[in-house]
């Protein structure tokens, strides 16, 4: 596990709209940082060092290193008619990489999000497509389908939902799912993970939806319910770090996204929060 390869990445460190002058004391990869607002957002690291800042997708982003790339694009963030939802933060005692991997997983829906995102006996995971897109250097899973009793706040009754998953950065993932009110569009739900340490993270979900009916409070509440259910899993996996070497855990066909994610992490040496040798 090393910080090196991941140090130049952008990480979410707070919701822009909720910042004030008093600032937010938090941590990034073990380093205490302060996120404040004086007009724009400012992030200060150890010994008053100024860190790079971006404000995008409702959040403040920073880096301990020197980012070589711009923040990954989410074109839907500029699409008119969408509602943007800053869901808030959920602190989870787990590896940031485990938090992302759980987000990529659909097989747990009937057992962890029972009667919301899944329900027995509809447990089967159909084959889907997974690839590492070399041009953008992202992991993509497409044609993912799953039966859901209540796929979204705006859904009434069960439907088969189609998903696409995208890993855009080592701790950031974007999910596109069938949008009940607009069959030709995708709802966008992201999981931005702030690695506090290798075994502790703040999870910032953010959404860009076509839903004019549901109140903001209900939208936030719905997502928080889901993430709290996920937390009860994430804090009880052993080991806490994500094992990147085969042998420690047993994947099946349903886990193809996770397999590709782990392979991609390993290839880039993105190992902050990972365990390399089976212990």
């Amino acid at each position: 596990m090393s910080i090196q390869a991941m140090i130049d990445e952008w990480y979410p460190v707070g919701i822009f709209a909720q910042l004030d002058e008093a600032g937010r004391n938090t941590m990034l990869m073990g380093e205490p940082i302060v996120v404040t607002k004086d007009g724009n957002a400012r992030v200060t690291g150890r010994n008053g060092r100024s860190l790079p800042v971006k404000v995008r997708y409702g959040h403040v982003w920073t880096s301990l290193g020197e980012p070589k790339k711009d923040l990954f694009p989410i074109p839907e963030a500029d699409q008119p008619g969408r509602r943007f939802v800053d869901v808030g933060v959920v602190r989870v005692r787990c590896s940031p990489l485990r938090a992302v991997e759980n987000f990529l997983d659909i097989a747990h829906f009937p057992f962890v999000h029972t009667d919301i995102l899944g329900a027995e006996p509809h447990t089967e995971v159909q084959n889907y497509k997974v690839e590492i897109r070399e041009d953008v250097d992202e992991v993509w899973a497409t044609q993912v389908k799953f039966y859901q009793p209540q796929a979204a706040k705006s859904a009434s009754g069960g439907i088969t939902t189609e998903y696409m998953y995208r890993v855009a950065a080592p701790t950031c993932t974007v999910l596109y799912k069938t949008c009940p009110p607009r069959p030709t569009e995708w709802d966008v739900i992201t999981l931005f993970v702030q690695p506090l340490t290798e075994e502790l993270c703040d999870v910032w979900p953010w959404m860009a939806l076509f839903d004019d009916e549901t109140s903001m409070t209900d939208l936030i509440h719905f997502q928080q319910t889901i993430f709290l259910q996920d937390r009860s899993i994430l804090e009880n996996q052993i080991p806490r770090l994500l094992p990147l070497d085969p042998g420690m855990e047993i994947p099946t066909r349903a886990d193809m996204t996770s397999i590709a994610y782990r392979r991609w992490l390993k290839r880039h040496n993105y190992t902050y929060g990972a365990q390399l040798v089976a212990q």
Binding site: D105, A107, H108, E120, T123, E124, I233, R253, A254
Partner: peptide, 19 residues
């Protein structure tokens, strides 16, 4: 509780709900 894999008394996995 995560993906519903079931184990018999012997420890053998007897069911993988995703498949």
């Amino acid at each position: 509780i995560y993906h519903g894999w079931s184990y018999a008394r012997s420890g053998k996995c007897v069911r993988i709900p995703a498949h």
